[in-house]
Design a protein around this nucleic acid. Sequence first.
DNA 1: ACTAGTATTCAACGATCGTTGAAATTATAC
DNA 2: GTATAATTTCAACGATCGTTGAATACTAGT
Lengths: 212, 212
Amino acid sequence: MKNDKQKTRDRILDAAEELFAQKGHEGVSVRQIMAKAEADVSLAYYHFKSKRDLFDQVMLRRADILNDIRLKALEAVEKRHPADAPTVEEIIDAFTHPLLDLLAREHDEWKYYFRLIAQVNNSPEWGGELMTRYFDPLVERFVQALRKALPDCEDADLFWSYHFLSGALTLTFAETGRIDNLSGGTVKSSDLASVVERMPKFLAAGFERLCK
Amino acid sequence: MKNDKQKTRDRILDAAEELFAQKGHEGVSVRQIMAKAEADVSLAYYHFKSKRDLFDQVMLRRADILNDIRLKALEAVEKRHPADAPTVEEIIDAFTHPLLDLLAREHDEWKYYFRLIAQVNNSPEWGGELMTRYFDPLVERFVQALRKALPDCEDADLFWSYHFLSGALTLTFAETGRIDNLSGGTVKSSDLASVVERMPKFLAAGFERLCK
DNA sequence: ACTAGTATTCAACGATCGTTGAAATTATAC
DNA sequence: GTATAATTTCAACGATCGTTGAATACTAGT
């Protein structure tokens, strides 16, 4: 039953994604994952080579989708500007908007994956290698576009600006609720429409001041 | 031997800090910590109530120092402006500069603590409660100062701006080396002087555009 | 030197960890 | 329907986990 195979493997991936996002790679046992997936412990090692392999597959599963929609968003912006270069805010919007939009519209489907990304990006253990492997080709593409929009910008300013962008974006993904506490309820981390309209403006201003 | 007691306790805290920062709370065992501290496993439970308590004490140990130097930096800026309000960049500089400066000048002493903060801030499990408990009083103080510098700014814009700031700052603390890979070596995450001169400018621009 | 408290060592508890091999079940192809 | 392959179950391995209690060494006050 081909259908069931896929179902079981995906159920394991779903359970692993949620638990990894909440407690981290080492904070969750294979047994806990399989209990949530309602399958025998051994099945983890039938469908995956090891716990680490399962973790990698969780990361991989959705990475291509993200890279795809972001690339398409960038190409759409560039197509709108056949002669001149797009503005910085347009480029940043193409980089962030698809993700925030996805998180907003299919929240239950994507929230755990984004939380996982937030943790991985900020972990010395995983951040360097994993993020580079899965997302850097796309990021380089965006950096190119930004360089064209800011032709006088030095590389150091450009890369540091991207670094600040990355930090702001991933903390938003984490949805820790800290901003909720801090603001006394006037701001909700789950209010992503609120972020979509603010983040590109905020970050574009940073790029432009640093790269002027 | 009062001196040795403090020595042992601190050795345990040092070892725990380094390992927690690298692998996370669940990624490290008490035995590994005590091996690095060169002390018997039981001593962990003589000096601390539990593994979780040890983690909390690691977090607490340096929090007061940070809150203190940042508050002093803010007060210094305000003293320089007896009549008018300080600029946004001055306030953000008071918020970020002391930390980056500390990390730069006493790197070996502080790097693991900052990496730990980066992970905690981006973890749904810890981020909300722990960060709130240790750092929010100071953050509220800074938000007040920013509100005075940006009197027309709505609270939502102000808090979201702080949120972006927080993400950029903590990712810098993480020192994952990802920016090193991405830039092909032109930028080094360890080059903190480079950050000190860029981050306040970048972030102040964001605040000002969003809150204009 | 004796005592009281502090600090450290040693040995062990039950629980849970990641992982595996072999048997049993179910689906697919002829 | 029978053989073959894919999937699932069951039982268990040695290792390591957080934690504890009791015995030992050390320090400080008298």
